[in-house]
Structures are given as C-alpha cells and as structure tokens.
Nucleic acid binder design. Structure first.
Length: 504
RNA sequence: GGCCCGUUCGUCUAGGGGUUAGGACGCGUCCCUUUCACGGACGAAACACGGGUUCGAUUCCCGUACGGGCUACCA
C-alpha cells in the first residue's frame, strides 16, 4: 500500500520568503491537496548565526496571504510530530541519537580540525592542482579525526570537551543512483561527494542530517525542493542507507529554478526591477524594505497563478486557474525540467485577468479607500460607475486613480501633442458654441450627449472629439467620451470647457 | 576548473519518429469606433549545432556549444 502523502515546506528563517520559495511551497501544497495528503511547515533554524528576526512570522504570513496554509507546523497548529522547529527538536536530542547510530555503525566519525586547518588543507590541494578540494576518503587520512587519531586520544579529546564535528564517511568510489520524480535517474559517483558535516561543533545538526531525521520522523512521503539541492541528494541517499532507512525515505522531486527575466541566474532581490517577495519585507539589517506583490497591487490568487505556471502547466492551454483547479490538475509529470525566466509583463497581465473577473461592486470597494485617503467624497453609485468605465484600462486597482483622476479633478495641463496637432484658429469659436449647446441640455446623459454632439456637428461645424476630450480631461485617452462627460456632470463639463478655452 | 542538471518563437510553454510545430504574454497590421479603449481578425516570430540510429528525427542515442545549479561547521 502506498504511503499517505505527507509533504513539507522547510524554509530557514534567514530572511523574507521570496517568490521562488513560495513556488516551492505552492507545489508542495498542490501535490498534497491533489492526494488528500498533509502539508507541513517545518522551520529549519539550525544556523543560529543566520537567524533573522521576523523571518519566521514573515514566512507564516506570506503563506497565509497566498492561501496555501499548512495543516500542521509552526504557526499553523501543532500536529503529532511537534515540535516543528529544528532548534527545538535539537533540544530533545533527536539528531544526536541518529549521529550516534551512524558513528556506531562506522558510517560517521568525529573530526577535530579547526577552520584554520581546513583552510590549509584546501590551499594545499589547490596548490597541488586538485580539481575539487574536499574533505573526503583521501584527504581525511591527513586530518585530525577519529579515523586517523589513536583511539585513546579521541577519547581524551571528547572527554576534554574539545570542539568537534561529526562527518559522514563517504566511500571513495561508488556509484550512487536515485530516481527523481521530475528528472528520472541521476547517477553520481561518491568521489564527487565530500564527507558532509552532520553535526556542527555547536551541537546543531546541519541541514543534511536534520532534514533526513525529520522527514523520517514526520513520515514525509515526498521531498519536494529546489534544484539547488540536486548535487547534495547523493549524500542524502547515503545517510538514509547507512541509517537502514533507504526503503522508508521520501521520494525526491527537484523543481526547476525561477530565473531572472533578462540576464541570468536565480532571481536576486537586489537587482530585480519587479517585486520578488509576496509581502513587503523589511530586513532588520537593512535600511530599505523590499516592496511585495501584495503592496504592488497584485491579487494573491493572481500571484499564485503566475507562480504555478512557472515550471508547470495543466497540459491544455488553460492559464487562468483557481487554487482549487490547480490542486485537482497538478502532477509532477507535468513539471518541466528546465529553469523558467520570470516575465514581469505577463505577471501584470495575469493580475489584469483577475481584475476583470471582479464585479464593479468589488472594484468600487477596492478603490474607495484611495478616494477617502485623498479627501474626495463621492457617493457609492458614482464610484461604481467610475469603476465600470475605467476598469478596462487598468491592470491594478491602484491604477484607477492614475487612469481616471480627471473625473474627480479638473485638469491643470492639456495634452500638448493633441493640442499641437488639432487646435487651430477656429477651434476656440467652435468649442465655445459647443459649450452653449451643452448648456441647453437638460437630460445630461451619455446618449443625449452623443446625439446633441452629432447635431452640433452639422449646425456648428466639424468638432474634434479628442480635442473635446483634452479640453475637459486634459489627456488624450480614456474611456468612452460621452460616458465620461455624463459622469463628470453638466456643470463641471461646461466650466472645464470654458476655463480651457480661456487658457488656450 | 570539477561535478550534476537542462536546451521548442524575445518570454512562459504544448507536442512528439511522418504536424501548415499549437497556445499565452509582448510586438505589428487591419476591422469595430466621429474620441479612447475593450473586443475581433490577421501577421512576424522557435525545435542550439554536429554526428549517428531510421525509409524518415525537432522528437531516440552520442558529442559540442550554450545556460543554470552545486562546489561551507549556509540552507
């Protein structure tokens, strides 16, 4: 019988969770939901030197905003495998137990080398033109460890509390094969794997050991993580094997990376000209915060949708999908192997799609706070009509203002290009006459305006519509003109027209 | 440098031994429109290269090139 699907997202609290991390969490979530499994949040805080205040809360809040909430783990309620913070698990002696097992079976050993000694070794190897300097089956013979030191000296060192690490004893030359769900069979020779540190001198486990112990104890069925972990996977296989747990180890799935749009490499928060964090992130060590997707006006559903299609697709041409749809459609077989360059333009388009699916009421409610903040009071119906008119021009709610502020405020400047092109000697006279026509309109609505304008064309002469638009709104583009004028109102329209004519 | 992974329009991707190589973003043209959009139609645009295997390869295999990842007592 197949194991129950249990997956985990296991970030380290070393900073804000960026979009690559969110996507990893998302794929875990989708896979879990697809198979009625569990999705767990585990905090991998084994590096005390890199701990960043606020990072853990950020991770939790980001997952909440995205709507991909773990059903077990830090910030989401304890489950049967608590605690879910590795620093706390360490206090319970969980990891020590496993390293002891490894040492007893001869698959791990104590190493007493100082960082200076390690540096020296690397320099020595580099000088000798060794292509990959590493602590391994060969070099360990010249280092200070329980394999080279006499037994009683090791004992003495241990008893005297001399600092030590525990390293994995990786065989010199042995092919390690594993089947990745996304990539298929991968083979690496153990000569390429170094004797990984399992237990650090501060007593903390490294990622390599800790995630294995926890995945086993938490009964994780699939380890889904970024491609950057692929090179260390062979070492992980070895650890499972030496623990006698190879048959119980989770299946591995290494996700392709999200790459920079231009240039190359992983997305870097500093160089990106688009948001890289779901929520704004203020690193306590830095002066400036990074603006998030949320604060940039993205809907979380759109954000998640964008991320899902970076490296995965449902196989038909469907692009706009709810989280629920994605859950039912998701499978690793349809995850691509190659990295995906992020396209900020398409991301905006996604948000626009979601915006268009909103009702006018919803949009009006989203836009209202902007008006309130500007001290503008308009009744709900007016705002609703405004949104109805302007929505086809915007990709984000905050663009309503930029795109349509002239509905609320009279223009100060007039589009110079349009004026230069279309304003001529007779314009002033023509539009003054049009203003008179407008004054005579009692039923001020779009249809009437359209009809009266058409009539005016024959009685007054050729009137340029775009010019009229510029005179009233200041800009050359915008929603349907007569709808706009109807919204702006008779008095405002006429007074704006007249003040424009006075200025030009 | 070494090791690992990858490579279909500019980008995200579908496809897969015989296809006019499909869709989406972006771009362009046209239609609608007395303005501006939306919308619609159309268009330009890709199988990295070289060898095999095969009747036939973009698809399978091998090289090369290119890209990415890793190369810590970081995850």
């Amino acid at each position: 019988m197949e194991k129950k699907v249990r997956v985990r997202f296991a970030p380290s609290p070393t900073g804000g969770l960026h979009m690559g991390g969110v996507r990893t969490a998302l794929f875990n979530y989708l896979f879990a939901k697809k198979h009625n499994g569990d999705f767990i949040l585990r905090i991998e805080d084994t590096d005390q030197t890199r701990f960043v205040e606020g990072a853990e809360d950020y991770i939790i809040n980001a997952l909440k905003w995205c709507g991909i909430e773990p059903n077990e783990g830090v910030g989401f309620g304890d489950g049967p495998h608590k605690p879910y913070r590795q620093s706390e698990r360490k206090e319970l002696g969980i990891y020590k137990k496993y390293t002891d097992r490894l040492i007893e079976s001869g698959h791990a050993y104590y190493a007493f080398d100082t960082s200076e000694e390690l540096d020296e070794m690397r320099k020595r190897l580099e000088a000798a033109k060794v292509t990959a300097p590493q602590y391994n089956a060969i070099t360990r013979q010249n280092m200070r460890n329980s394999l080279t030191l006499p037994e009683d000296e090791v004992k003495k060192l241990l008893e005297s509390n001399a600092p030590y690490v525990v390293r994995l004893k990786v065989p010199r030359n042995e092919d390690i094969r594993f089947n990745d769900i996304i990539r298929g069979w991968v083979t690496v020779n153990s000569s390429q794997v170094d004797d990984k540190v399992l237990l650090k001198s501060d007593g903390m486990p490294t990622y390599h050991l800790a995630h294995i112990v926890d995945d086993i104890e938490m009964q994780i069925s699939h380890a889904v993580r970024g491609e950057e972990w692929l090179p260390s996977a062979p070492a992980h296989i070895l650890i499972y094997r030496y623990l006698g747990l190879e048959n119980e180890m989770p299946k591995l799935a290494h996700l392709p990376l999200i790459l920079n749009p231009d240039g190359n490499g992983k997305i870097s928060k500093r160089e990106a000209r688009f948001p890289v964090f779901p929520l704004s992130w203020k690193d306590p060590r830095e002066a400036e915060p990074f603006v998030g997707y949320k604060e940039s006006g993205y809907y979380s559903a759109a954000f998640i949708n964008i991320l899902a299609l970076l490296g995965w697709n449902p196989g038909d041409n469907k692009e706009i999908m709810s989280l629920e749809e994605m859950c039912s459609l998701f499978e690793f077989e349809r995850v691509s192997k190659s990295g995906a360059k992020f396209d900020p333009e398409k991301a905006k388009w996604f948000n626009q799609q979601y915006l268009r699916h909103k009702t006018d009421e919803e949009l009006a409610n989203e836009f209202k706070p902007t008006l309130i903040a500007k001290g503008i009071t308009k009744d709900d119906n007016f705002i609703l009509n405004f949104c109805k008119l302007v929505k086809e021009k915007v990709q984000f709610t905050h663009e309503f203002w930029e795109q349509g502020k002239y509905v609320f405020e009279a223009p100060i400047t007039y589009d110079e290009k349009v004026i230069a092109k279309k304003w001529n000697d007779s314009s002033k006279d023509l539009f003054a006459k049009l203003a008179d026509v407008f004054k005579g309109i009692n039923d001020w609505n779009s249809t009437t305006l359209h009809d009266e304008f058409a009539k005016a064309q024959t009685s007054i002469g050729k009137l340029d519509m775009q010019l009229l638009r510029v005179l009233v709104t200041g800009v050359g583009g915008g929603p349907q003109l007569f709808d706009m004028l109807a919204l702006i109102g008779k008095e405002n329209t006429i007074s704006r027209l007249e003040s424009a004519l006075a200025k030009l």
